[in-house]
Structure formats: structure tokens, C-alpha cells
Design a protein around this nucleic acid. Structure first.
Length: 423
RNA sequence: GGAGGAAUGGCAGAGUGGUCGAUUGCGGCAGUCUUGAAAACUGUUGAGGGUAACACCUCCGGGGGUUCGAAUCCCUCUUCCUCCGCCA
């Protein structure tokens, strides 16, 4: 959520920046400023009435003490009028505040100046590319065929038990999943991240805190009976640990990592490119989250990118990094780097990580602040990235590591799997 | 699931209708003393809104009510503790 004071101070610059998202904020900005004006004047009026009422109450107390009951009762009359108007004013204030928040919740974050203009993923800019694309045999298979051939992932069985998009991992497939999770967590912990195990359901306040609500309401599974949401990413519970916190400057930076299953309804996204592991309703992911001082957050983003690069290098997967354009940038993000692994057998790039700086956008909703040594308080910056999302990494490994003898396990994973070939 | 008890500032813990945004202790910060530190002493120290700055307003788990006036009384929800039951 943007801060009203910032909108007021930087209106023109913000309007221009939001154009990169193809978001015309002209109207909503003036709505925000109008509502804020109303809110402040209403509050001022209300405060005045309350102050008067407080004065009278004190006076009445004194009069009772000194035994001047007649005078006290006269004053009592006066307060009843005040009560009427304070009631009206506080209702108006509450309504205005609510309206203001509703508008603010629906304005996306201001893109960083590095974000290229653009309308779709076509306009994302490749900023880095590394790794060798393997030469595969002519009869190389996509991962969903490999999964069947070696009986390591059973999509039909998941259909039977739950529905499409809920695969069952079997035998060496299940073991490989577990190996990847452990390997990712170990790498992140070695890089200074603290490991967490988080709840898989969150309440409404947490959904708003990180910005999934109200923007992505339809994309989360909602347990209506208890008004809880299945998490779409570990980002939500992890970042919300710091909701309503006043940290001290030397608590920062904070670096967390956690493995969770992730649940996404992905409503309306059926069709091409969703076969096999490419798009699922439930998938596993290891996430990294950082809380940073504003002046350090972009250096931290670069560090996160390096962390993910390091993992992909060790896995020896060919990958590239894209800087997302305005049209593809997430609602809450200022700057996002997407990582994609090249799937040789499918001959396409698969997104496996998204690494973002949210600046103060989440922190403002979360009320996540820190106190500097000089006592001043300010919003922290939040960042997160996948390190990494499992299914497409798995797809990439299966497809790129296939040989006539079976699927080789990347060297770095062998200590975790206990085998080096899936056959 | 049943029966009781509790929720106050970073922490501990007073406060049962008016001068309480809240005694006190610890912690934090600043100072005195000291070569330096510790100890001791002195001062200072919650959050949000609002203002050019003051003033002023709101907040004692959340919501609602009684009252001229609520941390204090009533209702309700949530959470925690103790006892009983059940249980991976």
C-alpha cells in the first residue's frame, strides 16, 4: 500500500512511473487526496468536540466534589448535545477511512526506474544467461513422459485422490523432491538465512499484510468455515511474522528461509503449457525473505540473485535472468528478477524463481517499522525470492539429465538422494 | 469438550469510576564520577493521528454497552494459564 503523504509529495513522478505498468492513476490519486483531505478535516472537527467534552467532564467532576450539584447537572445537559455530534463525526471518519483504504489497497506499487516499459512477458529484458544446454538424443522426452517411464510421478493418481494439479511423487521421485528441499534449505542456511517451518494456512490480516488480498483473492484457496487461506507461498506467513513490529536498527537485516507446500487455484489458466509439472495447484517451494533498511535493499536484492545463481550453477542447469517489465511486474513489487531454466526437451524456458524488492509497499500495510539509533522511526523494506520452486527445477533436471541409461542425478544432490541414477 | 482464573508500556508488575497515558522495578538512552569499565547518583524513555511548531485527540487483548466521565462496571469474542476428559 502506498503512503498518502508520498502520493501527495510525488504525484507527478508516481503517475509517470505507474504508466510503465499501464496503470493510469490520475483518477485514483485525486480520489485518494480528496478522501484524505476529508479524513483530516473530519478528524480535526471530531477532536475539537472531544476536547470540549473532556473539559466539561472534568469540570463536572470538580463540581460534584465541591458539592455544587445544581451547576453540575446544568453542565450535563450541554454534554448530551456534544455527544450527538461526536457520534455523527466518528461515523463519518470511519467511513472515510475505510473508503480511503479501499482505494489505496487497489493501487499497485511504484516500479523502480530500472523496470522497462512493456505490456507482457514479451517485453521482459534478459539481463543474464549462463550454463550449457545439453545435447540430447533425438528421442528425448518431456518430463511428463519420463515421469511415467520411470514411475516417479503419477499425475493420474493425484487426479483420483484430489484433482488435476495435485501430483503424487513416488519412490525415487519422492526422494528426489526431499533431496531438493534439503539441499535448498542447506544452501540458504549456509548463506546466513534462518530456517523456519510455518503454518500453511493464514488469516485474513496476513493476506492483506503481504498484499495477496484483496488483489489476488480468487487465486487462493479459501477455507470459508474458519476464514483462513491456504498459503500461495511461504512469503505470506514468513513476512507476516513481522507484522506490527517495531524493530531496532541493529535487528536488521533479517534473513529467513522456509520450505512449504504452496497452493494456488490458478483459476482460468488451463490450456497450453500447463502439462506435467509446468503448472500445479499444489507444489513445493523453498523461499527466502529479507527485511532490510531502505538504503541496503537493492544491494540485498543483488545478493539474493547471486544466491540463486549459485544454486543453479551447482545444479548445472542452463538458465537466464529476466528483469520484468511494467506489464508483467507483480502488484506489490518495485523490481523483480525472474529466473528461468531452459528445458531442452520442451525447447522452452521455465520460470523457477522470482526475486523481488517490495520497498515499503508491504511494510506499510504490515506496519513493519524500525527505530534508528537517533530514535527516528521508518518503514523497513521487504524482499523475497524463491530458492527455489521445486516442480520446474525437477522438470529441468529430468529433461536435461536424461540419458539412454536413465536420468542422472546432479552430483550435488547425490549425497541427499543416496542414488545417482533413476532407471 | 467441561470447570475455574487471567490479559496493563521493551519486560516484570501496581492500579476497582474523575487530577491516570497510567505508581514502581528492570532494561534502554544521556549525563556526573572514573585512565576506562562496573557500581552509585541524576535526568530521560510507549504507539498512532494531528500541527509550520505547539495545542489537541485516540489507544490499558479485540468489538460493543452503561455513565457527564471507564484501565476500573456490564455483554461478547479471542488468546493464555490451572484442573478434568479425549488424543497423534
Amino acid at each position: 500500500m502506498l503512503q498518502v503523504a508520498n502520493i501527495r509529495a510525488n504525484k507527478e513522478a508516481y503517475l509517470k512511473a505507474l504508466k510503465k505498468r499501464n496503470f493510469d492513476a490520475e483518477e485514483v490519486f485525486s480520489e485518494v487526496l480528496d478522501l484524505d483531505e476529508t479524513r483530516r478535516s473530519t478528524q480535526a472537527e471530531l477532536d475539537e468536540k472531544l476536547a470540549e467534552s473532556n473539559r466539561l467532564s472534568k469540570e463536572i467532576g470538580m463540581l460534584f466534589k465541591t458539592g455544587e450539584h445544581l451547576k453540575a447537572n446544568q453542565l450535563k445537559q450541554q454534554t448530551s448535545e456534544l455527544k450527538e455530534s461526536t457520534k455523527e463525526l466518528s461515523e463519518k471518519l470511519a467511513a472515510t477511512t475505510m473508503a480511503l483504504n479501499r482505494v489505496l489497497y487497489n493501487i499497485p506499487n511504484i516500479p523502480n526506474e530500472l523496470v522497462p516499459a512493456g505490456t507482457s512477458e514479451e517485453d521482459n529484458v534478459e539481463v543474464f544467461k549462463e550454463g550449457e544446454v545439453p545435447q540430447l538424443a533425438k528421442d528425448a522426452m518431456p518430463h511428463w513422459e519420463l515421469a511415467k517411464k520411470y514411475d516417479i510421478i503419477d499425475f493420474e493418481l493425484g487426479n483420483k485422490i484430489t484433482g488435476a494439479g495435485f501430483p503424487v511423487y513416488k519412490g525415487k521421485g519422492a526422494r528426489l523432491q526431499r533431496a531438493l528441499i534439503s539441499y535448498f534449505l542447506d544452501k540458504n542456511v549456509a548463506a546466513g538465512y534462518t530456517e523456519f517451518q510455518m503454518p500453511l494456512m493464514v488469516n485474513e490480516a496476513s493476506g492483506y499484510g503481504t498484499g495477496q488480498l484483496p488483489d489476488k483473492e480468487g487465486q487462493m484457496y479459501h477455507v470459508t468455515e474458519d476464514n483462513l487461506y491456504l498459503i500461495p507461498t511461504a512469503e505470506v506467513p514468513i513476512t507476516n511474522m513481522f507484522r506490527d513490529d517495531m524493530l531496532s536498527e541493529n535487528d536488521l537485516p533479517i534473513a529467513c528461509t522456509g520450505y512449504t507446500p504452496c497452493f494456488r487455484r490458478e483459476a482460468g489458466s488451463y490450456g497450453a503449457h500447463v502439462r506435467g509439472l509446468n503448472r500445479l495447484h499444489q507444489f513445493d517451494k523453498v523461499e527466502i525473505v529479507r527485511i532490510e533498511k531502505p538504503e541496503n535493499s537493492y544491494a540485498a536484492l543483488d545478493k539474493m540473485v547471486e544466491q540463486i545463481k549459485d544454486i543453479l550453477r551447482e545444479l548445472k542447469l542452463p538458465y537466464r535472468i529476466l528483469r520484468l517489465c511494467g506489464g508483467d511486474l507483480g502488484f506489490t513489487s518495485s523490481l523483480t528478477y525472474d529466473f528461468e531454466v531452459f528445458s531442452t526437451a520442451q525447447d522452452r524456458w521455465l520460470e523457477i524463481s522470482s526475486c523481488s524488492n517490495f520497498e515499503t509497499f508491504q511494510a506499510n500495510r504490515l506496519k513493519l517499522r524500525y527505530k534508528s539509533a537517533d530514535g527516528s522511526k521508518q518503514l523497513a523494506h521487504t524482499l523475497n525470492g524463491s530458492a527455489l520452486a521445486l516442480p520446474r527445477v525437477l522438470a529441468g533436471i529430468l529433461e536435461n539429465y536424461q540419458t539412454p541409461a536413465g536420468i542422472k542425478v546432479p552430483d550435488v544432490l547425490v549425497p541427499y538422494t543416496g542414488f545417482d541414477l533413476i532407471d
